[in-house]
Design a protein around this nucleic acid. Structure first.
Lengths: 113, 113
DNA sequence: CTGAATCCCATTGGATACTG
DNA sequence: CAGTATCCAATGGGATTCAG
């Protein structure tokens, strides 16, 4: 890609954001974490349809990207809590923008059909 | 999914929006179309790295979802123009929200590293 | 010029079973 | 409880070729 061009493939910020958001369930996860810490199981319960493997993987990615924090307690039974980082909380803004737009969109779809 | 539950798999608006936005290049395309109509080739030039198949496919999806309009002129050489629909233009809001967040995010990443 | 048609591969996500 | 470990299917996206 970009073979012999002088455009240095500058990474558009939006793409960075999209890569972070990308993943079927990530925004859903963020949504539920927006105002409180949740345990692994609690998240899973709130998102019916997600499998453990996928949930774990998306949580790991979000953690890697600095969107949320994972705290494991050395207890029996084990306890792991997830919460949003400050920058993660700010992503809710995007969620809301999406939501506002989606409502408008669905509204006009109704009219179209 | 949701076998024998009473939750009727309500489609979260945000998911609708995500499905529409989803696709590596869609927001980029929207971005370039935000204030003017563009021809196929013009879009392709503005987005280095995208292949024709993918560009065509993403344009078709956006058209199907009512985000943009395709106008083909029966001329030689052929001319095809793309422009945003009203609801498509409103998606720019989301783009901007993403962008604002992404800038903040990249900023703090710099601090972290 | 503006695509459509094929072929192909990598990645994502899902089903299921197992574990410290 | 909070994950791993496998295996598998679907999809997205890329390279290339063909066509109106």
């Amino acid at each position: 890609m970009n073979i012999q061009t002088n455009k240095p493939e500058k990474v558009c910020p939006v793409e960075v954001a999209l890569n972070i958001i990308d993943g079927k369930w990530k925004l859903r996860i963020l949504y539920f974490l927006q105002d409180r810490t949740l345990r692994y199981n609690e998240i899973q319960e709130k998102i019916p349809g997600i499998t453990q493997k996928v949930l774990t993987s998306q949580l790991r990615q979000l953690e890697k990207d600095g969107i949320l924090t994972r705290r494991a307690y050395a207890e029996i039974p084990p306890r792991v809590e997830y919460s949003l980082t400050p920058i993660g909380k700010k992503l809710i803004t995007v969620y809301k923008a999406l939501n506002v737009w989606a409502l408008e969109y669905l509204d006009q779809e109704l009219v179209r059909n």
